[in-house]
Simulated assay, not measured.
Amino acid sequence: MTTHKNILIGSDTSTSLAAILKSLQTVNEYSFITATRVSDIIQISKSIQPILIILSFRDNQNIINSLISYNNSFTIPLLCLRQQQERKELKIQDQMVVFTQSFEYGVQSNHLSTNVQGILNLIQKTTQSSSSKTFAQNALQNNDQTKDLTRFTLELDQKKAILDKIKERIKQLYVNVDASTKAQLMSIVNTIKMTKNDRKHWDEFKRYFENINPNFLKNLSEKFPCLTAKDLKYCCYLKMNMSNEDIRLILGINQESVRTHKYRLKKKMVLEKHQDLRNYLQTLTN
């Protein structure tokens, strides 16, 4: 196995390991190696140097401390899946690159593969841009922006999911209340619709996206001046390798709308039938 194609997954329960592996079925071209003991994680990370380590322990901090104790200059990127009971912020050394995500949100809500793919794309991009440096050395320059971009994407996704649940609950209550209460409930629903389309979230997302992908939107607009603001938003999400399902959730639309818009984007960009829009945007230089 080639070292840059290995991902190490560590967890203290076989159930969690199985759930993580199932969530990563769409992450192709990588070999997954699993471990349940700290000593195994240290030994495997030493022998094969995986491109990424995913941790899902009851105490991720203990695993991080063990890795640092073994190697003070530990630089392999980590993704820590945090359990509900894990309240404290992780303490990490400056040279380490650590991403965090809720286990429940990532695995149980099927968002883990998108986050992992985004991290892998960042690793690949950073490695290609400067092969003489480690990923950690390069990532330290834009790590905060990258994590903020992921955070805004996940927060927006979570926000829409919560608002959708509230709307469903309002629908259930609507049929059993008087006219005055119905009017108040409809006012809440209209407020939710306005909030779901809040431009501030997009502006913040765009700012962090452009820090990581400078000139991508500018060059894309110059190359295809026919693209609308909505088109450019889709291109950003596809550049991040978001799935159709992720885009659907973030924009609050159905799968068919996502597919239709991607088809129209291909036509505007005059791409050949065999060309994949997602791959085209990801390989497009900034």
Rank of each mutant, 00 (worst) to 15 (best):
T134C: 11
S129T: 04
N143T: 06
K230H: 05
T195W: 05
S113F: 02
S221W: 06
S113N: 09
Q145M: 12
F135W: 05
I188W: 04
F205C: 05
L154I: 15
N110E: 02
D164C: 03
Y237H: 10
G118A: 10
I123F: 04
V107M: 11
T127H: 13
D144I: 15
N138A: 05
R151N: 14
V177N: 01
N115G: 01
H111G: 03
I170P: 01
S132N: 11
E210W: 00
P225G: 03
K133D: 08
L112K: 09
S132V: 05
R169G: 12
L238C: 02
K193W: 05
N197T: 09
W202C: 01
A136G: 07
T126W: 00
N213A: 07
S113C: 02
K167N: 15
N211Q: 11
F205M: 08
Q137H: 10
N211P: 03
C226R: 05
S180H: 11
R199S: 15
T228H: 05
K125I: 03
F205A: 07
Q128V: 02
V189P: 00
F135C: 08
I123G: 03
S131G: 05
K125N: 14
K171D: 10
R199N: 14
I188Y: 07
N143S: 14
W202Y: 09
Q172E: 14
V107Q: 07
S130T: 00
H111R: 12
K206D: 13
A183S: 11
L238T: 01
K218I: 10
V177C: 12
K133Q: 10
Q141W: 10
T153H: 02
E210L: 11
P225S: 04
L149Q: 05
L154C: 06
K223V: 04
K171Y: 09
K230E: 15
T153Q: 09
Q137I: 09
N143A: 13
I119M: 12
D198W: 09
K160E: 12
T153G: 09
L232E: 09
A229C: 01
A179S: 14
K230C: 06
N219Y: 07
E168M: 09
S221T: 14
N121A: 15
E155P: 00
K223A: 12
E155H: 09
I170D: 08
H201L: 06
V116I: 15
